[in-house]
Design a protein around this nucleic acid. Structure first.
Lengths: 339, 339
DNA sequence: GTGAAAGCGCTAACAG
DNA sequence: CTGTTAGCGCTTTCAC
């Protein structure tokens, strides 16, 4: 269902009970300072007595405003994204917003549908980690609609009219690869993930740059796409080592893939960190407790989430300024998986 | 801000553009079969042309209904809870609901505030993992309000008027302790978490029952409360071993605490699994890849989340039946951390 | 099948 | 400081 039968206590009821007008009651509900303390008390007492619950929906309708924010991420189960979510949510909550959550699971259709739903629910702003390119038509619809949108963690080339906050993936990919090269590796794979994600493409760019700078050959057979899951990493590594000339080091698209890859290596009788170097990306908490502990690139998801929320908040408060990209620097965290 | 200046395209506009009445346009928007196909097409075309966006908020207001569901959990970053959230969210989304998310971080005030906010936003139902006891007044307010509420994962004794879905924590605690006893341990600690959580109390009950059944002494110094975090587990274990007669095995409140405890053990030069047995609770994905791999009790968070969502859905569709508790059986997963 | 009128619960604007 | 009036965008009767 969704219907409710019992009619609710309205401001009208409260006003009548307290012997004031509806407008006065409304001002009390909103904590206006215009109201005499005495009246205020009287009205508040009536509210309590009648069990009045403020109707934010009716209020939003009338005042054409909304403190609801839509947050769209691609997945919840991956710790990277749950940290991202924790960051945005915590900050938004602190600023008094209510959060509507959406998850795309990488589907473009789902993404479009979620955005529509959020607009229909009158969100005052949106924060999202896009899954795929936006159709120019969708970009148009959002702009037309007139609410601020902040993208984070994933980028979209068709959406340059929106703010973006994320880690420097090119730099991160570069640092990871460079680290492996520094450890003496010459045959380094880039494992897992798919080009659908801007993060994947940027990390690969960094990877290539590092190889190039060190005069190492680029071998496309060493770049293997898989779902960015544990299982993807595990399967991927098996496939990779089925080839003629396997790599000696793995730069994994993210930590989850890296964990899967380590499983896969063991399955083949290879010891990660000793026989094959493995580096991840994100620095999710569990990387510190795996065996061997995973070397990785810190991507600061929580921080990025909070920054995105902060920016949206400013935009919703009228910050008028050209859309911009804010890129934060990644950090290399050396542990035992890279020897 | 939150204000929007540009006035939106309304059904009125659409109706005028299409040369029909507002009521007709409304029926088209809702896919009513009462409308002649020809009119329907005409109206749909007008909608597209004008860029009409359905206003679900106005609709809800008038029709006194809501497809928005409030979901309240205690934390996002703990994989156990993010799995729980993933389960509810996925199912609710599939059934066409929009989800408002709330996080209590264990605070009772925050919990009360979130519940109020959700009611103010006219949610049609709520799913929550309670943090603390509900005041009878709060229970009253919710009942009065008349929307269905499903509790999951954590229980509340003052809320027996609500449905509850969770794992059998008593049984889980029993199985964990029994397993350790079976491995020859006689001095077993119950480490981490706090009695504020029903899950903590139930797991302790199982722990005690097992000790009792095997005629082992109960020593309250072996029960140590800490925050249910990694750090809590680490600190806790240090404290525990500072005592005169340390335990030989740890039953940890949950996996996160157990991971922290393993860190703490190593810090003291003790090897988890060899020198001290460690068992966790939840079976979060990373337990499979720690070193040593963590023995634990499966609590099936995703499944519980989905079941809760399913139940709420039924309730919102008018399922009228006494509130009930649905308890699912935990499973022991033996790995290396218990020798 | 379609239209006209009333009203969901609230706030804006203005008067006093 | 408080009251009056109008109306946010939609759905619900109830005519026709």
């Amino acid at each position: 269902m969704s219907k409710r039968n019992k009619s609710r206590v309205t401001l009208e009821d409260v006003a009548r009970h307290a012997g004031v007008s509806r407008a006065t009651a409304s001002l009390v509900a909103r904590n206006s300072t215009l109201i005499a303390e005495k009246t205020r008390q009287k009205v508040l007492r009536s509210m309590k007595e009648l069990g009045y619950v403020y109707d934010r929906i009716a209020s939003n309708l009338r005042s054409r405003s909304s403190y609801i924010v839509g947050v769209i991420i691609t997945e919840i189960a991956n710790p990277y994204f749950s940290e991202l979510l924790a960051g945005v949510h915590q900050k938004l909550d602190r600023d008094g917003y209510t959060v509507i959550l959406g998850t795309t699971y990488g589907s473009r259709e789902k993404q479009e549908k979620l955005i529509s739903t959020m607009m229909e629910n009158r969100v005052g702003g949106m924060i999202l980690s896009p899954t795929a390119e936006f159709s120019p038509e969708l970009v148009g619809r959002i702009r037309e609609w007139g609410i601020p949108v902040v993208m984070f963690a994933r980028e979209v080339s068709t959406g340059t009219e929106f703010d973006y906050i994320g880690v420097d993936n090119v730099q991160g990919g570069y640092m990871a690869t460079e680290h492996l090269i520094g450890r003496g590796h010459r045959r380094i794979a880039y494992l897992g993930g798919t080009p659908a994600s801007s993060a994947w493409r940027h990390r690969r760019e960094g990877y290539r740059k590092a190889l190039e700078l060190h005069g190492l050959p680029q071998d496309d057979r060493l770049i293997l796409n898989t779902p960015d899951t544990r299982e993807g990493g595990r399967q991927g590594v098996l496939e990779l080592f089925a080839g003629i000339e396997p790599p000696t080091a793995l730069f994994c698209y993210n930590d989850i893939v890296a964990l899967g890859a380590m499983q896969g290596l063991r399955q083949m009788g290879l010891e990660p960190g000793r026989d094959v170097a493995v580096i991840g990306f994100d620095n999710i908490p569990e990387t510190e407790q795996t065996f061997p502990r995973l070397t990785t690139i810190s991507a600061f998801p929580k921080k990025i989430g909070m920054m995105a929320a902060e920016l949206l908040h400013e935009r919703m408060n009228g910050l008028d300024r050209q859309p911009f990209r804010q890129i934060i620097a990644p950090e290399l965290v050396v542990r035992e998986s890279t020897g």
